[in-house]
Design a protein around this nucleic acid. Structure first.
Length: 571
RNA sequence: GCGCCCGUAGCUCAGGUGGAUAGAGCAACAGCCUUCUAAGCUGUGGGCCGCAGGUUCGAGUCCUGCCGGGCGCGCCA
């Protein structure tokens, strides 16, 4: 509808120019919006205002000229008004709106799908949690945002791949292995050896380690240690190989657990990319990346370390790639990894990060440019941390002490639908208080149920109709003009906006717009449902209304699907 | 100290890339089930959009400075 109108206005401008009424150099992009005030029409444009300066004419005069030049060959316009300083307000005929229902009926689950992405290969990397512990609620938010964004972009015509980057290379997984090994020694009654392990771990040069060691102390570590102890293959190993076994099997077990949790959360990946792959002796991508940067003259040595001149690309300071002890940095891995992403053919890369990593963006953007890519092809979506609450009080958590609530536990307590919807209720970069009691026990007033209930209600209507032996005729055989109530037209108008909403949400990478849209649509539906019977003795009206709510049900289901939330038939 | 994010109703937050009189949910108060699901509906009250300037026909939205909150600033990952 909107597109049609833009065409009409565009054509009118051309015509006015031809006639010499307007001297337009180039046709401005036509901003067409839906006014908040109903009396201002279905659409309004401000072109007359923006042309005022260059035309040297009063905006209202220009609006008059445009209005006169408009040709409504399709007959969709009821009338045109000029208002305020020079707005042009368009009123669409009710009959024209009804065609939206036929469109939805025809496209079904594909209503709203678009090709603005033009099959552009996009990669979304998200979660990417270290395989050193279970997922927590912050990972859950990242998972919900990343997954929903992937669905959204895919629906908008992008060729989307989802990826999980596994940090299985550096000191973090070393700590995991040490932790399990330590626990194993302890459980075996060898406290002296356990102390040695602890001391070794504490000897790590990591400055942040103020405690006695870097060992993870969560209960899952004990579980893993017990598991390994029960394995004959573990017991059969010589002592010095057990530590390696702990690390390797520990990673494997943690990854499996993470994967299972995510699957339960409705999230899957196309690729699990191992950091170790970057250090393959036959094809060392980190070395290759550094070599490439060196050839470009962007690398220098200082203090025995190898640096990248990220300051040339806007970073505060240059960054180390290879430490003076010969070890590469995490940054070096990341450069190689992102270089590989581009080499795999992705033309846009999206990383979903926790907001606490935001300081890392400038150097990564710099690295992307150093590699010769457009920094706009690399986007970081920051997801703010989640405050887990219970009864209004923050839940204290500590990773190292192992006192944290896992994502799994949260899901079990509040349900995956409520969990996902709540994560997508706000902009990703705003802080989120996740109150377990609010999301769960107050479930009857939870937005997710409000929306799902609308879907279930309509499903129930169709069951009722079927029981009464009502067979809905095809839409072209139905007299849709019986839909004349204000709320019916309001709902149709909202349905008509859905495709544009999807496009905008995809472009802005903001899945939360869908949750707001859903709440508004569900709200209108509930009000309509309460005031009017859909199934009545007036069969013609019944058919028309059933087609209307069928379209509503379709759009709710589609939008929920983009959020990864189920659309139940009954509740 | 420097950098990034945030500041909108009592609370939690929207506000479509500059448009007309700033919205929703929760909380509070008053009502609605012999009817396709009351997980629902209807109504009421509630605002210096942190503060001060600037840009222009027009600013919650863009720019600058300040105030308040969060986060980050390693040859850690």
């Amino acid at each position: 509808m909107k597109d049609k109108l833009i065409c009409i206005i565009h054509y009118a401008l051309l015509k006015a120019k031809e006639k010499g009424d307007l001297s337009i150099q180039e046709i401005p992009s036509i901003v067409l919006e839906v006014p908040k005030e109903e009396g201002h029409g279905d659409f309004a444009t401000t072109v007359a205002l923006s042309l005022a300066k260059s035309e040297k004419k009063p905006p209202r005069k220009i609006a008059e000229i445009i209005k006169d030049a408009i040709e409504d060959s399709g007959g969709i316009l009821e009338r045109i008004e000029i208002a305020g300083p020079g707005y042009i307000n368009f009123f669409i005929k009710d009959s024209a709106w009804l065609s939206v229902l036929s469109e939805i009926e025809g496209k079904g689950a594909n209503y709203g799908r678009s090709d603005i992405g033009k099959s552009k290969p996009v990669q979304i990397e998200f979660v990417s949690a270290n395989p050193t512990g279970p997922l927590h609620i912050g990972h859950g938010r990242g998972a919900a945002v990343g997954d929903s964004l992937a669905r959204l972009l895919s629906f908008a015509g992008y060729d989307v791949k989802r990826e999980f980057y596994i940090n299985d290379f550096g000191s973090q997984v070393e700590n995991l292995g040490n932790s399990i090994y330590f626990k194993y020694r302890e459980l075996s009654g060898d406290n002296e050896a356990a102390k040695v392990v602890r001391a070794e771990a504490a000897d790590d040069e990591t400055p942040g380690a103020q405690d006695t060691s870097n060992l993870y102390l969560g209960e899952y570590i004990t579980d893993l240690a017990k598991d390994f102890i029960a394995r004959p293959e573990f017991q059969a190993l010589p002592e010095d190989e057990k530590k390696i076994y702990c690390r390797e099997e520990g990673i494997k077990m943690m990854l499996r657990q993470i994967g299972e949790t995510l699957l339960k959360f409705g999230v899957s990946f196309d690729e699990w990319y191992s950091e170790r792959k970057l250090y393959d002796p036959k094809n060392n991508l980190v070395r290759a990346a550094i070599d490439e940067l060196r050839e470009k003259g962007l690398v220098f040595e200082d203090g025995g370390a190898v640096w990248l001149t990220t300051t040339r690309f806007g970073d505060d300071k240059d960054r180390v790639l290879i430490r003076n002890n010969g070890q590469t940095t995490y940054f070096a891995s990341d450069i190689a990894y992102h270089r590989d992403k581009f080499m795999r053919g992705f033309r846009e890369i999206v990383d979903v990060w926790g907001a606490d990593h935001h300081g890392y963006i400038p150097r990564m953007k710099a690295a992307i440019q150093a590699l010769g890519h457009d920094p706009d092809e690399f986007n970081v979506l920051l997801v703010q941390l989640v405050n887990l609450m219970r009864e209004g009080q923050p839940v204290k958590m500590s990773k190292r002490a192992g006192t944290f609530v896992t994502l799994e536990e949260v899901m079990d307590e509040v349900g995956t639908d409520a969990c996902r919807f709540t994560f997508l209720l706000r902009r990703p970069d705003s802080h989120l208080d996740f109150d377990l009691d609010l999301v769960k026990s107050q479930s009857s007033e939870n937005p997710v149920y409000y929306v799902q209930y609308a879907h279930a209600r309509l499903s129930s209507v169709f069951r009722q109709a079927a029981e009464k032996g009502i067979v809905l005729p095809p839409i072209e055989k139905v007299n849709l003009s019986r839909l004349s109530l204000p709320e019916e037209l309001a709902i149709i108008k909202r349905l008509s906006v859905f495709p544009e909403l999807v496009e905008k949400a995809a472009e802005a990478k903001e899945p939360h717009r869908l949750t707001y849209y859903l709440q508004e649509l569900a709200g209108e539906l509930h009000g309509y449902y309460f005031r009017h019977k859909f199934i009545s003795d007036d069969l013609e009206l019944t058919y028309a209304r059933m087609h209307l709510v069928k379209a509503v049900r379709q759009v709710i289901a589609t939008a929920l699907g983009l959020l990864g939330v189920s659309a139940p038939e009954s509740m």
